[in-house]
């Protein structure tokens, strides 16, 4: 390492001039919520891995939008000549195009949920938490600030990616004579609900990362909850699991976005409450444990 720049402590090098013993009661501004939020945003944007995950989400969302536009077009074409396909198309309400921009949502929730886990677990695995909570010893403001940064980023990124995916999909669908109106109320609803849903998943990820304090463990729990449990619940026979399946957080998106009620899912209001509980309960638990556990 370079030692040529070693600063020798001298009267001018230890910091701003200050009278040594006379220290006033108020040394200067402390960690207000706004300052902590600013700090968490700096932390968020100065990690390359975070930026890569955000970019990956956008690419996947837009890519899947384009792919799905093409697939939907092919399907609609086939429906023109095949009565069976036409029947299937009619069963979908005839409006397949409107869901095209959000086709990549499963991947967005996986990536951004994992990001939520990582941003919290890495605090503990790297020791950064000691710096974070020495600066904000009340701890909860730092957690809430990070949560705000994560959820708002997840929401905005999903919304923008969905919109861009829509822009890419429109001309492709047009080739097959399908119309997608990004300004329609259903399009806007899908964009908002999906973005809010992904923000909720990212929040659940943050709670898991805080509880588990370990990146692999946190991501495994997230994947278990969103990808393994729905399949496992379907495979296990019994009415209980059919019923319980509806209450998994990943199964609340369908009722929340459907035009009409889909069988074997919750009502819209129920789905909203269930998803809310999946966010609030783990977060509350994480907050309490964060406050009382040693860093």
């Amino acid at each position: 390492m370079s030692t040529s720049t070693v600063a020798q402590p001298g009267p001018r090098s230890a910091g701003p001039a200050h009278s040594s013993n006379a220290r006033t009661a108020s040394p200067g501004p402390g960690p207000s919520f706004f300052r902590v939020l600013n700090s968490e945003f700096i932390k968020f944007r100065t990690l390359l891995s975070t930026l890569i995950l955000l970019a990956a989400t956008a690419v996947v969302m837009v890519g899947f939008g384009a792919l799905s536009a093409w697939g939907t077009g092919q399907f609609a074409d086939a429906a023109g000549s095949d009565p069976q396909a036409a029947e299937a198309l009619a069963a979908q309400g005839g409006d397949l195009a409107v869901t095209v921009p959000t086709s990549g949502i499963a991947f967005a929730q996986l990536i951004l949920g994992s990001l939520g886990v990582l941003l919290m677990s890495s605090e503990f695995t790297t020791g950064m938490a000691r710096s974070t909570f020495a600066a904000v010893p009340k701890r909860i403001p730092a957690f809430v600030a990070k949560l705000a940064v994560v959820m708002v980023s997840a929401f905005i990124l999903t919304a923008v990616s969905t919109y861009v995916a829509g822009l890419v999909a429109v001309p492709i669908l047009d080739n097959y004579g399908l119309k997608l109106d990004l300004a329609s109320s259903q399009s806007i609803k899908l964009l908002l609900v999906n973005s809010a849903y992904v923000a909720a998943v990212a929040a659940i990820g943050m709670a898991l990362g805080t509880l588990v304090r370990n990146s692999a463990g946190g991501i495994m729990s997230l994947v278990g909850l969103f990808f393994v449990a729905p399949i496992a619940f379907q495979l296990i026979p019994g009415d209980f699991f059919v019923e319980a399946r509806k209450y998994l957080p990943g199964n609340t998106l369908t009722p929340l976005t459907a035009v009409e009620h889909v069988p074997d899912t919750l009502e819209v209001w129920q789905a909203g409450l269930v998803l809310g509980a999946w966010v609030v309960v783990p977060l509350a638990l994480a907050t309490i444990l964060l406050k009382i556990r040693d860093v």
């Binding site: 402390g30 300052r35 700090s39």
Partner: peptide, 12 residues
């Protein structure tokens, strides 16, 4: 960036 983030909490 580490120091910048730490400083931000106290408007340093």
């Amino acid at each position: 960036n580490h120091l910048l983030a730490m400083a931000a909490t106290h408007s340093i």
